[in-house]
Each structure stands twice: as structure tokens, then as C-alpha cells.
Amino acid sequence: MATPLAFTAHSTHSMTAVRAAFANEQYWKDRIEAVGGPNARIDSLRIDGDNVRVEMTQTIPASELPAQITNIKPNGLIIPRIETWHGNGGTVEAHVDGAPANINGSLTVSGDDKGSSFVVDASIDVKIPLFGKKIEAAIQQHLTELLEREAEFTDNWLSSH
């Protein structure tokens, strides 16, 4: 059974402002540079009005991972990730290169002119006997920390643009 990943961030910026950032190419470039991890990159970005699809590769260095993961992936984790947005909702898909680990879920932005909320409702599934749940828990912790950094980045980026 997969491990849930539930994350909510609140912002004083309006839902309209947050969605406008998601439809801005410079936002994605700045975000991946600021919080993507070592050697992070945008592989593909398509913006068509409210429809956004960004494919990125992010990394978690081995120095930030517990032993049960570095025993399997001694050079850290390379995580290709796809976010797709249509209006105020979207999806996220990610996997760990070279490992049977997948993340899938939904993304939502809601709110009004006084503030907004960003919600991730996903699941983490690692198909490794005996160690899968421990690895899922470690991935959940790191993804939650990454989502927190991305939410903070988005608030700061909106304040300065």
C-alpha cells in the first residue's frame, strides 16, 4: 500500500497571482535554480494560457538521504517530475531513476483576492520488499521539505515581481 503525501501551503497572494506565476516561464527557471537541488534542470516547458506542462529533473544528494536509500542508490536520487496545470487544478507525476519508486497525485490552488492555498494530494509507491515503507517515508519527508521550499519561493517571487 502506498504512502500518502498530503501538503498544504497558504499564501497572502491571491489565487490569480499564484496561477499567473505558474504561467510565467521565468518563474519556473528561477524556481528550479533556487530550490531544485544540485544539477536540477527544466527539461521541457509548455505554456498555453492557463495550460502549463513543466518537465523537470531534480536531485537529492546522497548526503541528505538515510542509509537504507544510499545502500540502494549510493549517488543520491535523480527525480524526473512532471507538473501539469489546467486552470486551478493539475497533476504531478514523478519517479526515481533506476528504482521502482513512483509519485502520483493532484494539485490544487484555491482562494480569492485576499490569499490562496496550494494543495498536493499524492501517493508514494516504492516496490521494494522489506524496505519499501522505510524508503517511502524518507521520500515523503524530503518531498514535504521540497514543497515547503517551493511554496516559500513562490511567495517571495510573487512579492518581488
Rank of each mutant, 00 (worst) to 15 (best):
M1Q: 09
A2K: 05
F7P: 00
F7H: 03
H10G: 12
S11R: 09
T12H: 15
T12C: 15
H13V: 10
H13N: 04
H13G: 08
M15D: 14
T16A: 08
R19L: 11
A20C: 10
A21V: 00
F22L: 05
N24G: 04
W28A: 05
W28Y: 00
D30W: 04
R31K: 10
R31A: 03
R31P: 00
E33W: 15
E33M: 09
A34C: 04
A34D: 04
V35D: 08
V35F: 01
G36V: 05
G36N: 06
N39H: 10
N39F: 07
A40V: 02
A40K: 04
D43P: 07
D43R: 03
S44F: 00
L45V: 03
I47V: 02
I47E: 00
D50Q: 15
N51S: 15
N51K: 15
V54L: 02
E55R: 04
E55W: 01
M56H: 04
Q58W: 12
Q58Y: 10
Q58M: 13
T59Y: 05
T59D: 11
P61A: 12
P61T: 10
P61V: 08
E64F: 12
L65T: 00
L65S: 04
L65N: 01
A67T: 13
I69T: 10
T70R: 02
N71F: 12
I72C: 09
I72D: 03
I72F: 05
K73P: 01
P74L: 07
N75F: 11
I78V: 12
R81M: 13
E83N: 09
E83C: 05
E83F: 02
T84K: 06
W85D: 00
W85A: 06
G87P: 10
N88T: 03
V96H: 03
V96Q: 06
D97A: 14
G98H: 07
G98Q: 05
P100H: 01
N102Q: 13
N102S: 14
I103M: 04
L107N: 10
T108P: 12
T108N: 11
T108R: 14
V109N: 07
D112S: 08
K114D: 15
G115A: 13
G115N: 07
S117D: 02
V119Y: 09
V119T: 02
V120F: 03
V120G: 03
D121M: 00
A122W: 02
S123A: 12
V126K: 08
K127H: 13
I128D: 14
I128R: 14
I128C: 09
I128G: 14
P129H: 03
P129R: 06
K134D: 11
I135Q: 09
A137Q: 13
A138N: 02
I139M: 02
H142G: 12
L143R: 07
R149Y: 05
R149V: 14
E150T: 02
E150V: 00
A151L: 07
E152D: 15
F153R: 08
T154D: 09
D155V: 11
W157K: 11
W157N: 00
W157H: 06
L158A: 04
L158V: 02
S159H: 10
S159F: 05
H161K: 08
H161W: 08
H161F: 01
